[in-house]
Design a protein around this nucleic acid. Structure first.
Lengths: 155, 155
DNA sequence: CACTTATTATGAGCGAGTCACAATAAATGA
DNA sequence: TCATTTATTGTGACTCGCTCATAATAAGTG
């Protein structure tokens, strides 16, 4: 049993399963995302460089993009923020973001799979076949509320 | 009665009510957004230049940002797309975007006001006070489905 | 071990939007 | 009506997040 989730062995197996080569760059990126959920590429790069100092930013972008396409990572893009990545995948959970400090919390999806909601179309709308319903909650976390911090420029 | 919605007079009155000066630039931008809902700044600029050719891109950004803060416009940012603007405001409706062609349709909000959903927090999450629940449906419109168009690079 | 081809590194470049500051023009009052 | 004040717009440089083309490298294969 070499596939305890979150280990290099487990990631290596998953990469294999997707027909990808197992490189130290990919393993470093995966580990970095695992330990820094809801982080942008820049943070992932910094974290991954702890274990692989010669890693470049461009490689991180390439790897993140590819692993997202493979569904090994999930990407979401809050307003006024670069894209954020996480390893929690396949449960269609949602996110809440604090408009004061930008902190992100996971929110359960009651349904557990996509789409968890079905749209009520306008009368004059041309309906689509919905695959995903992404929900982004926006609010204020306790800390920011206490410090009367206002939404700054975040909209 | 000078405030039939969508007329220059109506926009002028609304601008006044918000303590803003009534300029031809703002009126041109508002009219452009009205006639091109779900459009990016670039499209708004092109449309507004029909009636005001000397308008600059930077002014459009400033005006759009300010009017959005005033809640006279609503902005939303689909993945891999510049920000889109619309004049339909205050009803907390949602959006559906086609992953094939990027077309956007309005979707009614059953509740009608924000937040229309309440989050189910993770056990270890630090809850926030939620103000808005933004829902973005992603799917495929009939046209793209017929033409077997795949999600291209849109994620 | 050599070789093939995926992967990563390098460096230029792009789209969308922001910033600082000068020019202009709405609103106000004389 | 005109002059004044100050919000608004225009100009041009610049940033951020990310992509693209191409060369160098290294993982997997026979």
């Amino acid at each position: 049993m070499t596939d305890t989730p979150g280990t290099h062995e487990a990631w290596a197996a998953a990469l294999h399963a997707h027909g990808r080569r197992v490189t130290k760059q990919r393993l470093a990126v995966l580990a970095a995302v695992e330990h820094h959920p809801h982080s942008p590429a820049e943070t992932i790069l910094a974290a991954a460089r702890q274990e692989l100092p010669e890693l470049t930013a461009q490689s991180v972008y390439v790897v993140l993009g590819d692993l997202t396409d493979l569904q090994m990572l999930r990407r979401f893009e809050p307003p006024h923020s670069p894209a954020l990545y996480e390893t929690r995948v396949g449960d269609n959970h949602h996110h809440a973001i604090c408009t004061g400090c930008g902190r992100v919390e996971d929110v359960e999806c009651a349904v557990g799979h996509a789409p968890c909601l079905t749209p009520h179309w306008d009368e004059d709308a041309r309906p689509m076949t919905i695959q995903i319903a992404d929900v982004l909650y926006q609010g204020i976390c306790e800390d920011c509320q206490r410090s009367h911090k206002l939404p700054a420029e975040r909209n």
